[in-house]
């Protein structure tokens, strides 16, 4: 092995890479929030009485879970152009991940709703609560606890998915910044090892934060 490693140039661009980390976390958070909102709607649509809504939700969920995330991002980035909708790579990546998140989270929420015994709603209704009030005060808090860790998990997966921004030319997130410097110097291994370490730290930091938050939140 007569390759000599050069780490200094990598550490010189550390500020830029850390700024990329922020963009990465931002995209992950954004696509998780959107995914949760759509996921709840899909879960309710799938279980609700409306036939058309149930079919639509099922189609979204099955399509989202049975095709690659990268494919979904491509579809948003390249495919929507056919409808005259040209998203930039940031928006396309966020939308693609959000689409993927919604499909998986919808099933998580559906399972969570089924895990709460129907006797809970009955008890709430017997105290004079309306159905929406019972859902908000009794079902939702319990559902939140059940789906909390799956949701955190999905957010961490979203962080990892943001690296796919490379394939649609995003150059502001961690992977994109890394690639930007990589093509200038071709120190691929050095740059991407540091990027890998940063991704690892982001994932672990999120896990840790979520544990602390859970400890504060769920006292029962």
């Amino acid at each position: 092995m007569n390759y000599s490693f050069h780490w200094r140039p990598v550490f010189q661009v550390m500020p830029e890479m850390l700024a990329g980390c922020l963009v990465t976390v931002e995209i992950a958070a954004l696509s998780t929030v959107i995914g949760v909102a759509i996921g709840v709607a899909l879960a309710l649509g799938r279980t609700g009485g409306n036939r058309a809504a149930a079919a639509f939700a099922l189609a979204w969920i099955e399509f989202g879970r049975n095709t690659p995330g990268l494919f979904q991002i491509y579809l948003v980035y390249f495919g929507l152009g056919s409808f005259g909708l040209h998203l930039n790579s940031y928006a396309a990546l966020t939308a693609g991940i959000a689409f993927n998140n919604a499909s998986y989270l919808a099933e998580t929420f559906r399972g969570g709703l089924r895990a709460i015994p129907s006797t809970q709603t009955r008890a709430a209704r017997s105290l004079g609560m309306s159905a929406p009030l019972a859902f908000r005060l009794i079902m939702l808090p319990q559902l939140f606890r059940i789906v909390y860790y799956p949701m955190v998990n999905q957010m961490i997966l979203s962080v990892l998915m943001t690296a796919l921004g490379l394939t649609v030319g995003l150059d502001t997130d961690l992977a994109g910044v890394t690639q930007h410097f990589n093509v200038l110097t071709y120190r691929t291994f050095e740059y991407f090892s540091v990027a890998a370490a940063l991704y690892y730290l982001i994932a672990k930091a999120m896990m840790l934060t979520s544990r602390v938050v859970a400890w504060r939140l769920f006292r029962y």
Partner: peptide
């Protein structure tokens, strides 16, 4: 919902709100 305020019910299974 208004009527139920005046009729309390307790069930066989304990229905405490766990949270």
């Amino acid at each position: 919902n208004r009527l139920r305020r005046r009729i309390g019910i307790v069930f066989q299974q304990w229905n405490a709100f766990p949270h």
